[in-house]
Structure formats: structure tokens, C-alpha cells
Amino acid sequence: MRNTSRKERLSNVTGIYEFIIGLFIIIGSLLSLIATIGAIRLPDVYTRNHAIAKATTLGVMMILLGALIYFMVFESHFNSRLLLAILFIFMTAPISGHLIGRAAYHSGVKMAESSVTDDLGRDLQKKEKSKSRNL
């Protein structure tokens, strides 16, 4: 180990960084692919929403993180805009999932055949009933 030149050791370190960056980007793109498969396979809007809202969030975040590390190591340029993008996606993705689910429910989209319980429908019906009784 003592005989290795400085250049060789540096290339070893870059190898590790390359491995980490590759891992991040491959896992991110695989997650996006699996989310797409989920959108095709799952039975209704709500379950598809699960797959898209979660897997894509982490997938895009990991791809962006890989890009951030790449430019930090190989171009020695810290791009704070990528960090901001990660933060914004992290904050907005669950809310968009919530809004899509809510809009679907209120425009009367049926849940899948295999659904078991529906507490929201029950409570909404109860409210309707009490309102009509008051009138």
C-alpha cells in the first residue's frame, strides 16, 4: 500500500464515489419503473395513488441526489438548486396525493371490488340524514 502513488489512491476514491452515484441513480430509476408497473397493475384510483405518490417521490429524490453528488465530486460545483428541488418535491408530493384521492372520492369514483370498509361514505351518509331531519 505504501508504494501506491497519489494518483492511484485518488482514482480509488473516485471509484467509490462513482459506485455511490451509480447506486443512487439506478435505485431511483428502478423505483420510478416499479411505480409505473404499479399504476398499470393495481385495481383502482386510490391504490394507484399509493404507488405513484410514494415510489415516485423517493425515485426522483434519489436521482436528484445522485446528480448533486456527481457535480459536487467531479466538477467541484455545489448546486444548491438541486437541494431545493429535493426539498420541494418532499413537501408537495404527499399533498398532491391527498388532493387527487379527495377529488376522486367526491366526484364519485368507485373503489375496487375487493374493498372492505368505507367509513367516510358511512359518515357522509349519516350527515346527510341528520341534515334532512333538521329540515
Partner: peptide, 26 residues
């Protein structure tokens, strides 16, 4: 929670047989 949920959902999608019971609870 984000990492756990992602891997949970991925396992569910990749499983060859879909045996899920969705539902809404309060």
C-alpha cells in the same frame, strides 16, 4: 417513514399475486 413506505409498496406491486384488501377507515 418515506423509505419504509416505499419499500412496502414496492414489495406489494412486485408480488406475483395481488391479494390486497383496500378500504377507508376513520
Amino acid at each position: 417513514a418515506l423509505v419504509q413506505s416505499t419499500f412496502g409498496v414496492v414489495m406489494l406491486i412486485v408480488k406475483p399475486k395481488l391479494d390486497i384488501k383496500p378500504g377507508i377507515f376513520a
